[in-house]
Amino acid sequence: MAGTFERLTGDKPLPHHLRGGVVAIGNFDGVHRGHQVVLGRALAEARRTGAPALVLTFEPHPRKVFQLDAPLFILTPPAMKARLLSFLGFDAVVEQCFTREFASQSAETFVIDVLEKCLGISHAVTGFDFHFGKDRQGGPAFLMDAGKRHGFGVTPVDAFRDEGAEVVSSSRIRALLEEGDVAQAAGLLGYRFTVEAEIGGGQKLGRTLGFPTANMTLPPDTALRHGIYAVRFRRADGSLHDGVASFGRRPTVDDNGAPLLETFLFDFDGDLYGETCAVSFFGWLRGEEKFDGLDALVAQMKRDEAEARALLSGVRPLSELDGKVAF
C-alpha cells in the first residue's frame, strides 16, 4: 500500500487503515540479510493480498531487559531500524514496549492482546527461532496452531545462510564490527553499517590543523573498533559527502576522553552543529595511534585522506537497500 511510513508504539491503538495487515515479527536488530528474507516474505504476502505490510518489533531489546549487567551493542537503534524498514517498503513499524511484565504474559495472551486485538493481523511471518510468552513457551508451531484458532495465517522462515553456509546473525555482525571489519559486516548486512547522531561541538583542534570535523557522540555500548575509517556522510537534507572518520579517544590530543566519532568531510565547508546526520562505513584504514606531535598527526591525516578518497572512488551499492542507505 502506498503512503507515508508510520512509526508507532504498541501502547496506542493501531490506525484503522493498518488493521488486517501482514506482520513480520521479531527484534530485527541490524535488519541484516537473514532478517531481510523474513521481511521479504511478509512484503510478498502483503502485496499478494493487498494488505498493509507491518513490522512488530520490541523496544528495548529483550537482552537489555534481562541482562542488565551485559552491555549490548545495538546495530540499529529504533530510528535507524524504522528508516531501513521504510526503505524496504513497509507501511509501518509497531514498537512494542518490552518489559519484564510484558515478558511474563502467556503466549496465548500475546496472541490475543497484541496480534488479534491490537493489530488485527491477517498473517504473521516469523523467523525459525522466534519465541514469545512466559518462559518462551510460544514458538512457530504454537503460533501456527494459534493462527488456525484465531483466523490468521502464519509463515515460519528458515535460517538464512551466507555463501559460506553459515547462518547470518546479529552476533556475527557485532563481532566483525568489534574487529573493525566493516567490509565483511556489510556483506552480512546487505548494506554499509551506518550510525546517526546529532553533530556536537568539539575542541575545534581539527579546524586549526586544516581538518575540520563533524563530531558525534555514539551510544556508550557502541563496540565498533576504535580506528580510522573511509566513510560516506549524509546530511539531514540528503546530500552526501565522502570523508574519513576517526572513532575513539584521540590518543595524541585527549587520551582520557570519551569515545567520539569525528568525520572530516572532503571538499566541504559549512556549519553542521545541531544537525542530525548519518555516517556509513566503507572500509577500515588503520588503528588509533599516538603521534609525536601535531606535525606527525597532520602528515598521517593527509595519508588517510588520500587512501579514503581512493577507496571510495570505486564503491558501488551492494544492494537496492544499500543504494538508499549510503548512495
Rank of each mutant, 00 (worst) to 15 (best):
V94E: 00
Q36F: 00
R100A: 13
G30P: 01
R174L: 08
E288K: 01
I173T: 05
A326W: 13
Q300N: 08
E198W: 09
L176F: 07
A107F: 00
T194K: 03
V279F: 05
F264D: 02
S280W: 03
R309F: 07
G210P: 11
W284Q: 01
E59K: 12
L56C: 12
T9H: 14
R172Y: 05
Q184P: 05
T263C: 06
L39D: 06
V298C: 03
W284P: 06
F102K: 13
E178V: 10
V111D: 02
G21A: 00
K148S: 12
G50W: 06
F5K: 00
H16V: 14
M216A: 15
F130V: 06
S122T: 10
S246R: 08
H35D: 08
H241S: 13
V182H: 01
S86T: 06
R309G: 02
R136K: 05
G89E: 02
M144Q: 13
A310D: 14
A141N: 07
A24D: 04
L188E: 11
G238R: 00
R47H: 15
V94L: 11
T155I: 11
V182N: 04
N27R: 07
G21T: 02
M1T: 10
F73G: 03
D91S: 12
F102A: 14
P156N: 06
L218E: 12
S239A: 01
F128C: 07
V244D: 00
K117W: 01
S86G: 13
D304K: 01
V38S: 09
R149P: 05
P13C: 10
G314R: 10
A79G: 09
E289C: 11
R136M: 11
A278Y: 08
L68K: 15
A326C: 05
Y229Q: 01
K117F: 01
Q203F: 05
A79M: 04
V93C: 08
A308G: 07
Y191C: 02
P62H: 07
F98D: 12
